[in-house]
Each structure stands twice: as C-alpha cells, then as structure tokens.
C-alpha cells in the first residue's frame, strides 16, 4: 500500500514543472507518510489519489502562471488539430492514402509542438523537441501542398475557385523561418518574430481567400470545408501575432524574467 502511494506521488510529480518537482515530491511524500501514521494507510492512499487527480491542473497552472500566452500556444495547436483531423478523415474516406498519411503526420507534428510548449521552461521554439515538431509540421504541410498541386489529389479547402496557395506558401515560409531561428543565437528572437509575422500574413491571406471561396462555391459540401478552415486560420493567425508580440519574454526569457514560484 505504501509503495502504491509512493508510485502515485511519483506520477503526480511527473506532471509538475521540473524546477518544482523535488519540492513537491518531498512535500507530498512527507504528507502521505504522516497521514498514514495518524489516519491510516487508506487515508494516505486517498490523499495520494487526489494528488494524482489534481496534478494535471497543478502542472498546468504552475506552468502558465504569469505566462498567459502559453494558453494561446496550446490553444493554437488544438485549433489547428480540428481542420487537420477533418481533412484527414476526408482523405481516408476519399481513399487518398498519401494525403491521409501527410495529415496524420501533421497531427503528430502539432502534438509534438504543443507538448514542447507545455514543458517549455527555457523558451518556445528553442528545444530539440520543438524543432522536430516544427520540421514534421513543415514537411507534412509542404507535402500536402505539393500533392495538391502536382498529383491528382482533391481537397475542397485547398482547391476552391481561388487557390489558397499564396496563403499556404506564406505559412510554410514562416514556419521554416521559425524553425531555423532555433539554431540562431543573438538574433533568435527577432528571426522567430519575423517567421511568426510571415505565418500571420499567410494565414490572413488564407482566411481571406477562404471567405471568398465560401461565397463562390456552389455546393454546401465544399462550403463546409471552407467554413472549417477559415475560423481556424483566423484563430491561429491571432495566436501567432500574440506570440510575436510577446516574443522576447516567451521565446527566450531572460533568467530574471523566469517565474520563480518557490524560493
């Protein structure tokens, strides 16, 4: 039973930020052992269980404390997941296996970027995990664009009466610049902000063409695809712009700007 409580605490601690992990592990273990002595092992186990249940919230609040833009990074990735999954299902239904594979890759890339943002303690877009996620997103989105241009694939959101190509190319160039910024030193923040500006511009172009296409298309089936992509593009554009604005503090926080919650 004690081992189980220790295991539960270890699981709970995995979810809190690294710099607070040791403190919480010591605090919660001591609390658990004291409860076991005074109230019995069951109470101690119940406390450990409650800690595990509350740990995702504890971790989330502690990570995003004073860093509200982190909410936006996570929200941005989740927002992008919605049309990506929608288009992936469409590719599966229409038996476009390579396109479906590219969309699956895009989903994985977005999840990797979101998870690296979640654990980002030295700034966004700086770590290897973040760079890997961005590479996957870039490769998969470029593959989708090229397949749509060169191969006989069909995606109503990308085709439409006016092609969204200028928008998608803008986003991809922006992504490339953001990705490359990870390898830069002093100019990292400025380059990442430039990439985010390009992404915002690309997404606004995408959304504008999407709105026009929504009006111009003739069938409701095609209209749904634009209806899904336009709000997502606008939401992600605003997220990119927000991160760009908060850039220095978020992308490469100075040691004095880092949140030290417990002395």
């Amino acid at each position: 039973m004690r081992r189980l409580a220790a295991l539960l605490i270890a699981v709970a601690c995995k979810l809190v930020p690294t710099h607070l992990r040791a403190q919480y592990e010591a605090e919660w273990s001591a609390e658990c052992q004291t409860i076991a002595l005074s109230h019995g092992v069951r109470s101690s186990l119940s406390y450990a269980g409650r800690l595990v249940l509350g740990a995702p919230r504890t971790g989330f609040v502690l990570r995003t404390n004073n860093r509200p833009v982190l909410f936006d990074v996570l929200l941005l990735s989740i927002t992008l997941m919605v049309p990506t999954v929608f288009f992936m299902v469409h590719a599966v239904v229409t038996r476009q296996s390579l396109v479906a594979l590219a969309y699956s890759g895009l989903c994985i890339g977005l999840l990797v970027v979101a998870s690296s943002a979640w654990s980002a303690e030295s700034g966004l877009f700086g770590g290897k995990i973040s760079a890997s996620g961005l590479i996957i997103v870039l490769v998969c989105s470029a593959a989708i664009t090229f397949m749509n241009l060169l191969a006989d694939t069909h995606n109503p959101a990308l085709d439409g009466p006016i092609r969204v190509l200028p928008g998608s190319v803008g986003v991809q160039i922006g992504l490339l610049v953001v990705m490359l910024s990870a390898w830069l030193g002093a100019q990292r923040v400025e380059v990442a902000r430039l990439g985010l500006s390009l992404m915002t511009l690309g997404l606004v172009i995408w959304a504008t063409i999407g709105v026009l296409n929504t009006v111009l298309v003739e069938t409701w089936g095609e209209r749904i695809f634009h209806a899904v992509s336009v709000p997502s593009a606008l939401a992600v554009a605003s997220g990119c712009w927000l991160i760009r604005r908060e850039g220095p503090a978020l992308i490469a926080p100075k040691p004095s700007q880092e949140v030290v919650l417990v002395s």
């Binding site: 607070l20 919480y24 509350g54 740990a55 504890t58 404390n65 919650l261 417990v262």
Partner: peptide, 26 residues
C-alpha cells in the same frame, strides 16, 4: 499550516490548493 490540514478544513482540491500556495508565496 500544512497542506492536508487545509484540504480537510476548506474542502479545496489539491489541484487548486498547491498552485494557489505557489501564487501566494511568489
């Protein structure tokens, strides 16, 4: 005061209490 005592007395959940401790301490 210690965590378990406050949880019992106030009915707060650990997922709320510990981040609040962190904020107040900061």
């Amino acid at each position: 005061h210690y965590g378990f005592e406050i949880l019992k007395a106030t009915g707060l959940k650990p997922g709320t209490l510990y981040p609040t401790f962190a904020r107040l301490e900061e």
